Computed example of a mutant assay.
Amino acid sequence: MLPLSGLTDEQLHQAADRFGTPLYVYSAAELDAALGRVQQAFSGTRIWYAMKANPNLTLLRRMRAAGVGFECVSAGELARAEHIGADAEGILINGPAKSDAEYAAGARLGATFILDRPEEVALLPAHARVLIRVNPGLPVSTHDHLATGAADSKFGVRPDELPATLSALRDAGHTLQGLHLHIGSAIRDAADFGAAFERVAALRAMTGPLEVLDVGGGWGLDADLHGIAAQAQAAAAVFGAALWVEPGRYLVARAGVLLTRVMGHKTTGRAFTLLDAGMTELLRPMLYGAEHPVRALWQGEQQQVSDLAGPACESGDLLGRDVPLPAGATRGDLLALLDAGAYGAAMSSNYLTRPRPAEALWDGQEWQVIRRRETVQEVWAAEE
């Protein structure tokens, strides 16, 4: 059994043989289990899914059926939320540089706006519902590209800007629902959350009582959710506010596996295992230095260490460094990259005119194709 993916080796071989590789596969059982862990830890808390982690319509419909709302950061994500039937009470719109089209779509859908900078007050549609995103100015234990609550990040309103922002919102006739806080993704040290919650709670003297405190997400996959929840609930109580959370990666990462086949081997100054998947299918290792657990689906008594190299003509096209694998892999052997359900398929690209991979969901009884594999003709269709 693969760790926490909910999928067996036999099921993964079946999916790869049936649908080809590269291929994203998901376990419905693990999707449900991840949501259940959040619901249990954050009892009574409103849960919003950060759609950017994985916007597949089938996954979104499952979450909507479970009562989850959606945090959207583009007009396209707003359109997805509308397409699956999310209503005004189930949509947040976030982002540091919203377009006119996004303000208009948010207004039409009745979404709650997450305000990211003071001058945005003048751009909001009339009588908007608003959460102010606060930047606590704290270093956090994650990759620089994932740190959103640091003093030098592009996100949020500085605490010293908050009084003037609150006044401007009132003068413009908008409704302040509360404050929003999100310090980053894949946070390694849970103490970072406690420090951020304390800093936002200290703003109570400026804001007075609030309806909502939204503390975002960003928890590591092995985080103590009950401990984080207790600290978040204490911060919300300072404001007399309801607590909201916005998990993204946590809800979908461990449910997803990227399946890829061995294309060959090569040794230069380093040893490489060549794969049919790479940066066009899984960008996180190149973008964030992300390390995904790997499971080789072939047998071999001895271990050998190699880098996992994709097919692109890019030196950075590596899915792993110094990965121990069973010796003796031959062309066509199957490899599984775990914890790939978040920011995997969502960030896949058509670089090199590579069709994006198919996606399939195991519902406990059978495989369901939830995104068919693109053809090369579809890749260039908009150019004709």
Rank of each mutant, 00 (worst) to 15 (best):
Ala75Ile: 14
Ala86Thr: 10
Lys154Asn: 09
Cys72His: 04
Gly106Pro: 06
Arg129Cys: 12
Ala88His: 12
Lys98Cys: 05
Ala34His: 00
Pro118Glu: 10
Glu161Ile: 10
Ala126Ser: 08
Ala41Arg: 01
Glu102Asp: 06
Thr142Pro: 10
Arg61Leu: 06
Asn94Gly: 12
Leu124Gly: 09
Gln40Val: 11
Ile91Ala: 09
Leu57Pro: 11
Gly69Cys: 08
Leu131Pro: 07
Ala29Asp: 14
Val157Ile: 15
Tyr103Ile: 13
Ala41Thr: 01
Lys52Cys: 07
Ile91Ser: 04
Gly44Asp: 09
Ser27Tyr: 01
Leu123Gly: 04
Pro136Gln: 01
Leu169Asp: 04
Gly106Thr: 03
Asn94Ala: 14
Gln40Gly: 03
Val157Gly: 01
Arg61Phe: 04
Ala126Thr: 15
Ala88Thr: 00
Val25Gln: 05
Asp87Leu: 04
Asn56Trp: 04
Ala86Trp: 05
Ala50Cys: 13
Thr45Met: 05
Leu169His: 04
Ala86Val: 11
Arg158Asp: 11
Tyr24His: 02
Phe42Asn: 00
Leu123Arg: 15
Val134Cys: 05
Gly67Trp: 01
Val25Gly: 05
Ala168Ile: 13
Asp144Gly: 09
Asp144Ala: 15
Thr142Gly: 03
Lys154Val: 14
Leu146Gln: 02
Ala86Ile: 14
Ile93Ala: 00
Val38Asn: 03
